[in-house]
Simulated assay, not measured.
Amino acid sequence: MISLSQVTAAAGKVDFLVNYNWDWNYGPTFTSDDQWGLAWTDDFDAYPSTAKYSYKTFGFSQSNPAIRAETAGNQITGYNTYTPGAGIGWSVNLIQAFQQNGTTFIVDRNKGWSQIKIGKAHNGSGKIDSSSIVGKYFHKYLAANGSLSFDKSGPSVGISYDWAYDSSNDYGYQWDWYHKNY
């Protein structure tokens, strides 16, 4: 899921805060680095220092499957890869199990969240513009290490060695914004 909100509108400039959430309802067979990213149109630039993400897991007790628990999902500042004017991506190493209060929990669901602020200069003409953004998640299941790539003309998010990853469908979002000085 993608959500977007306008956070700054100043003379000649507009900024948006973009959130991307993913939910992978499986226990990982392999616990390598999974990756996800966002790509956008219209030459918006990200403010890399605003990039953050979190990852949490849900699981069942190894000794009693009726007992469930989840990890904290602490917020982390940073990102994995960035292409100015096109997109940004994150990665996380999935886990298969975790301990809480002496109990081992087997992971059967993974969730992540990421956020970035993007901005663009405008001419103040009052014109309405339309932009698009897409998010995509990649679960690694073979040994090859892929690198995210971003195409702003689509927009699209890709990965090298895509045969080594299960990927989500593209999740797109379109929004209208004004070339307006407030």
Rank of each mutant, 00 (worst) to 15 (best):
Q115E: 12
T29Y: 00
N145I: 15
G172D: 04
Q115V: 04
F58G: 09
D23W: 02
Q115K: 06
S160L: 08
W22K: 05
A39V: 02
S61Y: 01
Q62M: 12
G73S: 01
K117L: 14
S132A: 10
W175R: 10
F30N: 04
K127M: 15
A10S: 15
K136D: 09
Q174W: 06
I133D: 02
Y171L: 15
S131Q: 04
T41K: 07
G146F: 02
K52F: 01
D108T: 05
K56V: 07
A39I: 03
N123E: 11
S3D: 07
W22M: 11
T8R: 06
I67A: 15
W36L: 06
V157G: 08
Q62R: 10
K140I: 14
N21E: 14
T41P: 00
A72G: 12
Q115G: 05
T41R: 10
F60G: 07
V157W: 02
A72M: 15
T41L: 05
A143Q: 04
W177N: 01
Q6C: 13
Y165R: 08
S131I: 05
S149A: 11
N25I: 05
D170Q: 10
D166Y: 04
D34E: 03
Y55L: 10
F150Y: 03
N64K: 04
A11M: 11
I88R: 00
S167Y: 08
Q100A: 14
L148H: 09
V18Y: 00
N123I: 07
Y161K: 10
T77C: 06
T31W: 00
G87Y: 00
P155W: 00
D170A: 12
A46C: 04
P155M: 01
I118Q: 01
N181W: 05
D170K: 08
I118H: 01
A46V: 08
W163G: 10
W175S: 11
G172W: 05
I116R: 03
S132H: 07
A39G: 02
K127F: 08
V157R: 04
A121P: 09
K52A: 15
W175Y: 14
A11Q: 15
A51T: 06
D45W: 05
I159Y: 04
Y141W: 03
D33P: 02
S125L: 13
Y182E: 11
I88P: 02
F30Y: 04
N80Q: 13
S168D: 07
K180Y: 09
Y137S: 11
K152V: 07
L38Q: 05
F60K: 06
W24A: 08
G37R: 07
P48R: 00
K180V: 15
